[in-house]
């Protein structure tokens, strides 16, 4: 080896070391997972349909895999309708439906779109029946040109006729997939959010750690602050007898105070990213998803409710008035405002 070659190698080595010291993978904000517009484009792409689970990036692939897990392996074509709102489930699961404590028969419809939610009849049932007609990857016998090969395919793979009501597993086995998808894309907020929902069913502390990791990677995500607040409420409720909040319990009150701070922070970040009303009406599909709006409504409702619960009635009233103007369609908040009104 010539002396000049050796010098070149050393220089190259130094350059690589210098450049790699500057590499910060977590500052990368690209990827299709974050932008709804990109997702919509991918879903219309013929190539995307052809390549099935490889149609988007790795993170989306893991997210789609969770759907397979939830349907016991039955593969459906990509569809826009989400099976359920995890925020809604989380509200019930963390006991926010009973945040008032005294009123156990309180209406469960807290700040979220109830039509998207599960039937309350299914609570506690590990399986949920769904009536939405979604198309399976393996076609029905009538649409399958392969005749007996198609029949074999439907026998060998998990398959259900699209029209039949299909079972939806509430299975914590999806948890590893959320770990993988957030490792693949640390800015996949929905992965952290839905993942934490599943993890908290087994271990609230592990879910809280997962959300903390999500917040480190996405410090301005209002959805993750919402989730952290809900987890704090769940922790507080787990300390009380029969899950009730006791005003004299300092630990519970401290956690509720943390939750209040989370909801406040969430509301502030939400207002920074939520488009104006007139924009929402025109381009709601690409700029702001239904899930985000559900979360936004939950954030303000929970903040107002918690302020009221802590005893800041005036602050709660002020906030309710403010957010009723911002969200004129938020029925539950309007009802709350009427209850609190002078």
């Amino acid at each position: 080896m010539k002396k000049t070659d050796l010098i070149k190698i050393i220089l190259l080595w130094c350059l690589v070391a210098l450049l790699s010291a500057k590499v910060q993978p977590r500052t990368y904000t690209g990827g299709t997972s974050q932008r709804l517009q990109s997702k919509a484009e991918v879903k219309q792409s013929a190539l995307g349909i052809m390549l099935g689970e490889f149609r988007t990036n790795l993170s989306d692939m893991f997210y789609m895999q969770t759907e397979n897990f939830m349907h016991y392996g039955v593969a459906f074509l990509p569809h826009n309708h989400e099976e359920h709102s995890h925020t809604s489930d989380m509200l019930t699961d963390t006991g926010m439906a009973h945040i008032e404590g005294e009123d156990e028969t309180h209406d469960h419809d807290h700040g979220h779109d109830h039509e998207r939610d599960h039937d309350d009849d299914h609570d506690g049932d590990p399986h949920h029946d769904h009536e939405h007609e979604v198309i399976t990857v393996i076609p029905t016998a009538e649409k399958d040109y392969r005749s007996w090969l198609g029949n074999l395919h439907r026998q060998i793979k998990p398959w259900q006729a699209p029209g039949e009501s299909h079972q939806l597993a509430r299975d914590v086995e999806v948890v590893p997939l959320f770990r993988m998808m957030t490792l693949a894309d640390p800015h996949y907020v929905r992965g952290y959010q839905v993942g934490a929902f599943w993890i908290q069913q087994l271990d609230v502390s592990a879910a809280a750690d997962f959300i903390e990791e999500g917040l480190q990677n996405n410090p301005h995500s209002f959805e993750l602050y919402l989730m952290r607040g809900l987890l704090n409420v769940k922790k507080a409720r787990s300390m009380g007898e029969q899950g009730l909040i006791d005003n004299g319990n300092a630990a519970q009150q401290a956690l509720l105070e943390c939750a209040r701070g989370d909801f406040q922070q969430a509301a502030e970040y939400m207002m920074q990213v939520r488009p104006a009303l007139e924009v929402l009406e025109d381009e709601a599909q690409t700029l702001w998803s239904d899930d985000q709006e559900t979360d936004a409504m939950a954030v303000v409702y929970l903040w107002v409710t918690l302020e009221k619960r802590i005893g800041n009635e005036a602050r709660a009233l002020e906030l309710a008035e403010k957010y009723c103007r911002v969200m004129p369609d938020h029925k539950q908040l309007h009802v709350l405002l009427q209850e609190m009104g002078p």
Partner: peptide, 29 residues
């Protein structure tokens, strides 16, 4: 050949809800 027909891994993973294949399917395969 349609190789995915030889893959029963999904049913093995979710074996709590899916039963074994009928003999005629195996015979045809």
């Amino acid at each position: 050949p349609q190789f995915m027909l030889f893959d029963l891994s999904e049913k093995n993973v979710h074996g709590d809800v899916w039963g074994a294949l009928p003999w005629w399917v195996l015979a045809q395969m």
